[in-house]
Simulated scan of single mutants.
Amino acid sequence: MTPDALADRIRALPGDRVLVALVGPPGAGKSTLSDALLAALGADAALVPMDGFHLDDRVLEARGLLPRKGAPETFDIGGLRRALQGIRAGEEVVVPVFDRAREIAIAGARVIPAAARVVLVEGNWLLLDRPGWRDLGPWDLTVRLDVPEAELRRRLEERWAGLGAEVARAKIEGNDLPNARTVRDEGRAADVVIAG
């Protein structure tokens, strides 16, 4: 399904506020799809990137979770749930945004206007079938990007190329690909699956 066709399907959803979950493993192209959908939907749409709800590195370090940053237990799921409740209620909601260059979430970095009819929520774990995660939503439409592991590996190698071969390999093998397998193996079914 092309982004334009998906945008048409989203436009046709009923309701004054529509929440769409865009899910996929690291490197699947969630941000690229989100950008294309935002362009197609125009001013009527807004984006909540789940990565903004990363716990800070200092918190992760204290919990022994820094090497697993990006895994389900490294997010502020309560903060995400509360933000989604406000969004579902039609409120203006201010959300954090993750700055990948600095590896830090920036509080109050994006406003989801009350006037936005469509709110795209993009992240790895939105359909994870685990306590807390399965309680997110309700979603009006769920979309999963399904990318073969070999292609994910290639994309992740490109993403982390600047870190040096050993550091990149440790990040990919120790975190990104295990997370990708969890998305694949423990995710609930999506309404739309897009092969990549």
Rank of each mutant, 00 (worst) to 15 (best):
T2W: 13
P3N: 03
P14I: 00
D16F: 07
R17Q: 00
V18I: 09
L19Y: 01
V20R: 06
A21P: 09
L22K: 09
L22P: 11
P25H: 12
P25M: 15
G27P: 02
G29C: 03
S31H: 05
A39R: 13
A40D: 05
A43M: 09
D44Q: 15
A46G: 06
L47V: 03
V48K: 08
M50E: 15
M50K: 00
D51Q: 06
D51C: 02
H54M: 06
A62D: 11
A62V: 04
R63I: 02
L66T: 09
L66Y: 11
T74W: 06
D76L: 04
I77C: 14
G79H: 08
R81K: 15
G86I: 02
G90D: 10
V95S: 06
P96A: 01
F98P: 04
R100N: 07
I104W: 13
A107C: 12
G108N: 01
G108P: 02
I112E: 08
I112P: 01
I112W: 04
P113V: 00
A114Y: 07
A114G: 07
A115D: 08
V118C: 02
V119G: 00
L120E: 03
E122I: 01
G123K: 11
N124T: 14
L126S: 05
L127Y: 10
P131W: 10
G132L: 09
D135N: 00
P138V: 10
P138C: 07
V143T: 05
V147W: 10
P148G: 14
E149N: 07
E151A: 10
A161G: 03
G162Y: 13
A165G: 03
A165H: 11
A168W: 04
A168T: 03
A170V: 03
K171E: 14
P178R: 12
R181M: 14
E186C: 11
A189Y: 04
